[in-house]
Nucleic acid binder design. Structure first.
Lengths: 139, 139
DNA sequence: CTGGCTGCAAATCTTTTGCATCCTG
DNA sequence: CAGGATGCAAAAGATTTGCAGCCAG
């Protein structure tokens, strides 16, 4: 539960933080800071951008959410802090979660001395919606 | 060769483009637009940011280089247009290429109707340099 | 009560754009 | 010589910061 998450992280429980976590919970859209700000503004007219960014950054630090570096224009946020991969539509840029556990072995001689601790896979493709649109505009 | 790349893409051969490709060639640093701009400015005082961005975008469109969306702060560019993966240091954010061909099978029921055409793996870890620094500051 | 948090505005940083001029093909 | 390319400056976005006032613990 949200309150839990915040308290566990040793943070103060403010209405703004609850609103953000509430919006994020079960959200599969991987929203940007602006998406979050706008959505919350409707019910919470005093919310400010600074608070959104502060909160997201704090939650990320505490490991409660993930920041995605997938969109070249802006950061997006993923409420699911567990490691997982993403499916990205090349046309509409929609991002879906994909939960598969791959065992990716990196041979020692390719590691360049790195100690590898994790990985993240982006799968690129075309989503069903865009495939439909494309078939409708044969040249 | 650089001139080749540009001509093949059906572009005009300008000194600016040559300078950018020259800087990029064999560059393993995955530089940002600013890195490129600054580096070239020294020998080419009239170079402008707009030209750097225009050129990079054009080259990317033509498939001559790749744009990386790995750094949350800014775009980075990879002179190697062939598909490959990246090794990223969690501490100093250094990015290295890693050439391994993984066969990643995605079961039909996890595809959400997507038609998958490619993938990109980011391996996270600690580079040798940072490992050394860390061992030097035991708590 | 007190330190962490919020909200506002201004600042910063990256990237894009409009447009006059230039120069490659 | 025409259209694509450049360079400048200004604009547009996204994110960060400073700081006064507020409120959760």
């Amino acid at each position: 539960m949200d309150r839990q998450k915040i308290k566990e992280a040793g943070l103060k429980l403010t209405p703004q933080r609850l609103a953000i976590l509430d919006y994020l919970r079960d959200n599969l859209e991987h929203p940007s800071a602006e998406d979050i700000y706008k959505a919350i503004l409707e019910r919470f007219p005093t919310m400010s951008f600074a608070t959104v960014y502060n909160t997201l950054e704090t939650l990320r630090e505490k490991g409660a959410i993930q920041e995605l570096t997938i969109d070249p224009q802006k950061k997006r946020f993923d409420p699911n802090p567990r490691p997982h991969h993403h499916l990205i539509c090349n046309r509409c840029k929609k991002i879906l979660d994909i939960h598969i556990d791959y065992q990716l072995h990196v041979p020692e001689e390719k590691k360049n001395g790195f100690e590898i601790v994790g990985n993240h896979i982006e799968f690129y493709g075309i989503c069903p919606g865009c495939r439909l649109k494309m078939s409708g505009m044969q040249s």
